[in-house]
Design a protein around this nucleic acid. Structure first.
Length: 438
RNA sequence: GGAGAGAUGGCCGAGUGGUCGAAGGCGCUCCCCUGCUAAGGGAGUAUAGGCGCAAAACGCUUAUCGAGGGUUCGAAUCCCUCUCUCUCCGCCA
């Protein structure tokens, strides 16, 4: 959420910046509401002050045993006018609030201008793209060839966009997550967390998924509920990313200065409805309703958030380097950034079968955008509560990393070599070979 | 699922209709006293918002005692709903 003070004092500039990310801010509607707000709020507060003064004098008079009927008559008509004014104010405030909750974050000055993916800016590349002396296969063909990846059975169990892994592939998937967690905890100083996979509405509003992107989420309610889950008070949402529960750790909190920065890592499944992505990446593990991700979250002092962003990206890159997977880092342009981000770097890993780089991590500095929604603050040098800055990034998406390993480490005979750093997690195994059985 | 108890400031804790944004304590900040230390004395110490001011300061004002609604001229206090915590019983990985 943007600071409403900014909108009041610097509307033109803000509108211009929002336009660069394809968000047309409703200037007239805002001005109209603000105008009304000012009038109604002033009137309401005057009436409240009047009532408070009268009530106080009634109390004083009564304690002295004086007659209060005169003062009572004076305030008799106040009640209705006040109630009317209060409800009008409330209506205006909630309209303003609803408007603000839909406005995306302002891009940082260093973000390249652009309308879409094609305007993103490549920052650096790492690694050597592997050369194959045989026809490369994609991860689906490799996985099915090993008899370890089974989309047909997954479709029977659940439907489209689900997967079933078996045998050493399932183990390799687990190994990847363990390896990522261990690296971030032991080498990068993150606090390991285990957090809920079902969260409430407030948490999703805090990180920016609600109210605008409800259609991307899965909603769940207790089995005994017959009604539409949305009408129920007691429904949950499946997390679309661990960013939601982890960042919301600091919602409605005031963190002591000396506790900063906070760096959390969590390995969780993520659930996304993928509404609006029909026909995209329908083959394989790239775009699933359920996938695992190791998520990194930084909660930092505002002065430190851009330093932290570089650190965060570096931490995620380290995983790919250790796995020896070639990648590039891209700075997203204004038009391609997510709702809450002020600046985002994507890390894209090389996928031989697609002959291109594909997103495997997205690292964002949200500045105070989420913190303002969450009322997440710290006590500054002068003892005053100030909004924190929040950052998050994948370190990494486990399923997509598995895809990259399968494709980059494939051999002519259909086997897949296991990256050295993962072998300790695989009981020393150095190669995936075709498994027997169903 | 059943029965009961509770939720008050950074923390503890008092407060059952009026001058209560809230006693007292702890913590923290500043000052005094003390050769140093320990002890002691005094003052201060919530958050968010609105309006005014060129403006920091400041002044006026509103809201906030788990959340929302209600009763009342007036609610931390009375009523209703919800959330969460704790205890006991049941069920359960």
């Amino acid at each position: 959420m943007l600071d409403i003070q900014l909108l009041r004092t610097d509307l033109e500039h803000i509108t211009h910046k929002l336009a660069s990310r394809n968000y047309p801010f409703p200037v007239e509607q805002f001005n109209q509401l603000e105008h009304e707000r000012k009038i109604v709020q002033t009137r309401t507060q005057e009436l409240q002050a009047k009532r408070n003064a009268a009530s106080k004098s009634i109390g004083v008079a009564k304690s002295k045993g004086q007659d209060v009927s005169e003062i009572l008559a004076e305030v008799a008509n106040l009640g209705d006018a006040l109630k009317l004014s209060e409800s009008k104010l409330e209506q205006i405030q909630s309209e303003l609030q609803a408007m603000l909750l839909e406005v995306p974050n302002l891009p940082h000055d260093s973000v390249p201008e652009g309308s879409g993916e094609e305007d993103n800016q490549e920052i650096r590349r790492w690694g050597v793209i592997p050369a194959f002396d045989f026809e490369v296969r994609d991860h689906v063909s490799i996985g099915e060839g090993l008899n370890m990846l089974d989309f047909e059975t997954a479709a029977k169990l659940s439907g489209a966009r689900f997967s079933l892994m078996k045998n050493n592939l399932a183990r390799l998937h687990r190994a990847l997550a363990q390896f990522m967690l261990d690296t971030h905890v032991q080498e990068h100083g993150y606090i390991e967390t285990y957090a809920p996979y079902l969260v409430n509405q407030s948490s999703l509003q805090g990180t920016g998924q609600l109210p605008k992107f409800e259609e991307d989420l899965f909603i769940v309610s207790a089995g005994s509920s017959k009604k539409n889950p949305l009408e129920l008070h007691d429904h949950f949402y499946l997390i679309p990313t661990a960013e939601v529960p982890i960042t919301n750790i600091v919602r409605d909190e005031i963190i002591p200065l000396k506790a900063l920065p906070l760096k959390f890592v969590a390995h969780t499944p993520c659930f996304r409805s993928e509404a609006g992505s029909y026909g995209r990446d329908t083959r394989g593990l790239i775009r699933q309703h359920q996938f695992d991700k190791v998520e990194l979250v930084h909660i930092v002092h505002p002065d430190q958030s851009y330093v932290a962003l570089e650190e965060l990206v570096g931490n995620a890159e380290k995983i790919l380097q250790k796995l020896r997977l070639p990648y590039r880092v891209v700075a997203l342009c204004t038009g391609d950034m997510g709702f809450s981000a002020a600046k985002t770097y994507d890390i894209e890993v090389w996928l031989p079968a697609q002959n291109t780089y594909r997103e495997i991590s997205s690292c964002s500095n949200c500045e105070a955008f989420q913190a303002r929604r969450m009322q997440a603050r710290f006590r500054n040098e002068n003892g005053k509560p100030v909004l924190l800055h929040t950052l998050n990034g994948s370190g990494l998406a486990v399923g997509r990393t598995l895809v990259a390993v399968l494709e980059n480490f494939q051999n002519a005979d259909g086997s897949v070599s296991i990256p050295e750093v993962l072998q300790p997690y695989m009981n020393g195994l150095d190669r995936l070979l075709t498994a027997g059985g169903k």
